[in-house]
Design a protein around this nucleic acid. Structure first.
Lengths: 212, 212
DNA sequence: ACAATATCGATATATCATTATCTATTGCAT
DNA sequence: ATGCAATAGATAATGATATATCGATATTGT
């Protein structure tokens, strides 16, 4: 029976991983759930629970073996095998993502980008190829790309999304500030900046209410 | 007593708003919770619950008045009054955010940016000024900036964060893939792309398990 | 006018996530 | 050895969120 993990816990794993990797590399280093939690602002019980889903345990009085933990999380998250992705929309945000080196460490490899504006096509400064959008479906199929990243304006996002799905993409990462409908079997993750802003903005206005 | 709203619901509000605004503008248009839910992939009960926190209600057999709903959500989210923000880190992502026009509609106004690299200082292509980072604390205080956006590499994020806090910033929007510690009274929102990727990546690898 | 229907709102239930409590294990100092 | 402190792990309790049920109300068609 596969271990279960909550969505929230799953989203915390990269944070653990990131912190663990920032530690001085020592093959036999150990870390306790409490230390890890303190560093990241989580409770120690939560840390243990999160880690129980990915690792086969730490030792009392010692803690977890840092190196093992790193490996276990990476395997669990699938960072060990690379997922190919395409990006649609070579605007400012698209370019920023294209040239972000960090994705490699997350097992994400952007193999190509597309844009409807022919002026943006060619080789990007990141070294990646930008193709006209009508090549997209075919190229996705040929390369068996599994992930599509959408960084086009909201107005064309659904259209782009449909093409990606047609091209056999299995997961879509949407940066356009709009809702997309996808078939059930396709995973959709919205990077909803407006939602984040809503939180900040609400907190600020609540401060104004409470503090006279 | 002020109406309460869950964090999750709060994060859905911008999505409602965005969809409502995409509808043909008609002063007397009405929309039912079910229609709204179907369009966005939410359950109708959830929609009603979410909206109950912001609006003073729809009418049976009719639904909600679209125009009123838009206004109510905007007021609730504070989009009517503008919050000034500064951005730190004029790299690719920073520039992308600086030139994103959409923030205006969310009541966010980036008044200035900072970077430690003097070569990046001056006037950005977005028309915004980029200042050396040692001017930051002072400028935040003078302009009473409430929001700080961090788009620097993980290694310098905490340092930048501390300066922002010193400068009196009340909310921090962190795009660096690292954990930040802030005083209790400062709101921190992490835009954790790694966390989103974790979800996609996990779903993909789970597909591989289940489908032989 | 009255029934039928669509819809809202409130309450209750179920699901999911976090935190607290308790027990068991390990290493260390005596 | 033996007892103490630190720590993991399991279970239970709390809290947050989503879903279901039910009654109330407005519109529409007879």
């Amino acid at each position: 029976m596969p271990k279960t993990i909550s969505v929230q816990a799953l989203q915390r794993l990269p944070t653990y991983l990131n912190y663990l990797k920032s530690l001085p590399l020592d093959k036999d280093a150990k870390i306790s759930a409490r230390a890890l939690g303190n560093a990241l602002g989580y409770g120690e019980i939560q840390v243990r629970k999160d880690l129980s889903a990915v690792s086969d345990g730490g030792k009392p009085k010692v803690g977890y073996c840092t190196a093992e933990l790193i490996r276990d999380i990476e395997i669990f998250l699938g960072y060990d095998d690379v997922n190919d992705a395409v990006l649609v929309g070579a605007g400012k945000l698209g370019k920023a993502l294209m040239s972000y080196e960090g994705f490699k460490t997350y097992g994400l490899n952007i193999v190509a980008a597309f844009d409807s504006d022919l002026a943006k096509c060619g080789t990007d400064e990141s070294g990646k190829q930008v193709f006209p959008i009508d090549k997209m479906e075919n190229l996705c199929k040929r390369l068996k790309v599994r992930i599509g990243i959408i960084t086009v304006p909201a107005s064309s996002a659904q259209q782009v999304c449909d093409i990606l799905v047609e091209g056999g993409v299995e997961a879509i990462w949407n940066f356009a500030p709009t809702h997309l409908s996808v078939p059930e079997e396709v995973v959709l993750k919205n990077e909803n900046m407006a939602a984040s802003l809503a939180i900040l903005s609400k907190h600020l206005s609540e401060k104004d209410w409470n503090c006279p």
